[in-house]
């Protein structure tokens, strides 16, 4: 941590500010896309921000028999995601804080957020909390192998799991992007991201029907500012995952030096890439129905097979 210059700190501050401000817009954008494709007008894109502002002004409530785990889960959820946002190479690969931007470390940091939310749901002592918690942990347990093996496929060519090195590797070797292992790993990543962020076909973010929901059941007891933090945390998480996905597979535009111009280019290109990905995900959600809960393991097993094939093909080709 010695030798921190002003610029890298500036990058950290910029990443955190832009991502926190942008995350609710991402959710708004996806909702608008869905509404338009379904032939409805829908709320404006900035509606999520309006909702958050309203929620932040309310009183905090806490279930009678719950403990500090319920109270702290929204904080932990947002804080873990913010650590990832601050130190992952989202806008620039030239970062001094490489000790904090390891891809495996990011996975475990995000897992900490999920686990704290699952514990908070059990802390409420209701049937819904337990249901959401149990389902979330089952999905996390099964998504983990696919995720880590897919990371292995990306890390193997550069012999490192450090995110800046992986991204720099694909910048220097554009041919890697079209190799079979990249495409297979991409597939695995997309499935895992959909599962982890509770999108269709794993979970329907628009539903409020108790028996089918996962994420909604987890945060059923939250209201007011706590709910705002959970919503912010979840949307931030989706934004980070999509940004990581686009940087890992289509890294062009990311700043390699810390000049003002390259930084602006990085912000604009990342925003464009994430908006495109989000639009595709939202459009896809219009087309598919939610899977039965007990079919989800099959989907995740499919993702796992894709990632194992990605590792094997990367080694066969090398």
């Amino acid at each position: 941590m010695t030798g921190i210059t002003v610029w890298p700190v500036g990058v950290v501050v910029a990443q955190v500010t832009l991502f926190v401000l942008g995350a609710p817009f991402l959710v708004g954008l996806m909702r608008t896309v869905r509404c338009r494709l379904e032939g409805r007008t829908g709320p404006p894109v900035r509606q999520t921000w309006r909702d958050l502002r309203k929620l932040l002004g309310k009183q905090r409530t806490q279930p009678e028999k719950s403990s500090v785990f319920f109270a702290m889960a929204p904080v932990v959820l947002v804080a873990t995601t913010l650590v990832v946002v601050a130190f992952a190479p989202l806008l620039s690969i030239d970062t001094v804080f490489s000790g904090g931007s390891d891809l495996f470390a990011i996975v475990f940091l995000l897992l900490l957020g999920s686990v704290s939310l699952a514990l908070a749901a059990l802390d409420t002592g209701t049937a819904f909390g337990g249901m959401g918690s149990s389902r979330l942990m089952a999905i996390v347990a099964l998504a983990e192998p696919a995720l880590l093996v897919a990371i292995l496929a990306l890390a193997a060519p550069v012999h490192s799991s450090s995110l800046p090195i992986i991204v720099a590797g694909s910048l220097h070797h554009p041919m890697w992007l079209a190799t079979p292992q990249r495409i297979l790993a991409f597939g695995a990543f997309v499935i895992v991201i959909l599962a982890e962020s509770g999108r269709l076909p794993v979970d329907n973010p628009a539903t409020h029907l108790e028996l089918t929901m996962i994420h909604e059941a987890l945060m059923l007891e939250y209201s007011g500012p706590d709910l705002a933090f959970v919503v912010l945390g979840e949307s931030l998480r989706l934004l980070v995952l999509l940004a990581l996905l686009s940087n890992l597979f289509v890294p062009w535009g990311i700043a390699t030096s810390l000049t003002g111009l390259s930084f602006v280019v990085a912000v604009v290109s990342l925003a464009a890439k994430v908006a495109l990905l989000a639009t595709l995900v939202a459009a896809g959600e219009v087309m598919v129905a939610k899977l039965r809960l007990f079919r989800v393991p099959e989907l995740l097993a499919g993702a796992f097979v894709l990632s194992v094939l990605a590792v094997l093909s990367s080694l066969v080709i090398a």
Binding site: V115, V140, A141, L142
Partner: peptide
Amino acid sequence: AALALTGGLTAAAFVKAFGVGFLG
């Protein structure tokens, strides 16, 4: 894969142990 699967299942096991046993 084994490491990751056990990691995920351990998370489920201990969320259960702590969440069901000590919370609620």
